[in-house]
């Protein structure tokens, strides 16, 4: 039972991180229908930038965190402006392949600079965040991740629900032509959603880096894990991303714990295929309302 409980907790924590990573991915897809294969690399870039800020520039942690978020925001903006905007209206494969190309570019860049070895942040999280209760043991990072994640969720929820810019962004996702006819700056919305998504990705990258250490290959593998998560949750549902993340996280830890650790890497993708065959719009995705 204890084993089960510990697995459960681990699963939830990992799943929450998956969900967090998937959030940015969903945001990009929701507003501009671009499937971002470079998401894992965005995570990694965030993590490495934070590392550079903390260890090389030696900024205080909070400042470094903010600087990373700002840098990611700008990076997202640049990606949209210079790489994706020229492709508006081009066939799907070009858009997909462009993000794949960007992924290799970033990955190669990071490997050149930081190498493929595991790096770690200096320890800076206060110990009181750790929770120890009976058999349950949650390390401080997970608590911090949970707090940051929930904070961002609420923040974005409010942003999309109540701010005009958030409503404009949703309107573009909903009906681009109508949004255009009302003078919504569609390209600005695309750029903004990339910027926000990169910001969220950078943040999740930092959190993942704190937990597992920073390694280009591992972080970009998370970028692929995002696919089962978002397909499960529905490609266009931010809440769904979190829930999909939790489900995948639990599945992974349970298969890892009870069946075989190596199987846990492939189970999400088996689930992915099944979900695609049975319910392609995911658990929470919006099925196309077709009104003729």
């Amino acid at each position: 039972m204890n084993f089960f409980l510990q697995l459960f907790i681990n699963g939830i924590s990992i799943g929450f991180l998956y969900g967090l990573s998937a959030m940015g991915f969903v945001m990009i897809f929701k507003s501009s229908s671009v499937l971002n294969f470079a998401h894992g690399e965005l995570l990694a870039l965030g993590a490495f930038f934070f590392l550079a800020m903390v260890t090389w520039v030696k900024l205080p942690v909070v400042l470094a965190f903010l600087a990373t978020l700002a840098a990611c925001f700008i990076l997202g903006f640049i990606i949209e402006r210079f790489f994706l905007r020229p492709l508006i209206g081009e066939p799907l494969i070009y858009v997909i392949m462009l993000t794949v190309g960007l992924a290799s570019m970033f990955k190669g860049f990071m490997l050149l600079f930081w190498g493929g070895n595991l790096q770690t942040y200096p320890d800076f999280l206060p110990a009181f965040l750790g929770i120890e209760w009976h058999v349950i043991n949650i390390p401080p990072v997970y608590t911090a991740a949970l707090i940051i994640g929930i904070m961002f969720l609420i923040l974005f929820g409010l942003f999309f629900k109540y701010s005009s810019q958030g409503i404009f962004m949703r309107s573009v996702a909903d009906n681009q032509k109508a949004a255009l006819s009302l003078g919504v700056h569609v390209q600005r919305v695309f750029a903004l959603s990339w910027a926000i998504a990169a910001l969220v990705a950078g943040m999740s990258g930092i959190v993942l880096g704190i937990i597992n250490g920073i390694n280009v290959h591992d972080l970009s593998a998370i970028g692929l894990k995002v696919f089962p998560v978002v397909i499960l949750g529905g490609l266009d549902s931010i809440g769904g991303a979190i829930i999909g993340g939790l489900i995948i996280g639990l599945l992974e830890t349970f298969t890892g714990g009870y069946i075989s650790p190596s199987l846990s890497d492939v189970v999400p993708y088996v689930i992915l295929v099944i979900i695609l065959m049975v319910k392609p719009y995911g658990l929470f995705g919006l099925e196309e309302i077709e009104r003729v």
Partner: peptide, 20 residues
């Protein structure tokens, strides 16, 4: 690997942008 990765990515991106 890293160089290869980087130049692959760059080649793909450049081709898509300039001569799809």
């Amino acid at each position: 690997a890293p160089l290869r990765e980087f130049f692959f990515g760059t080649a793909i991106v450049l081709f898509i942008l300039f001569e799809p």
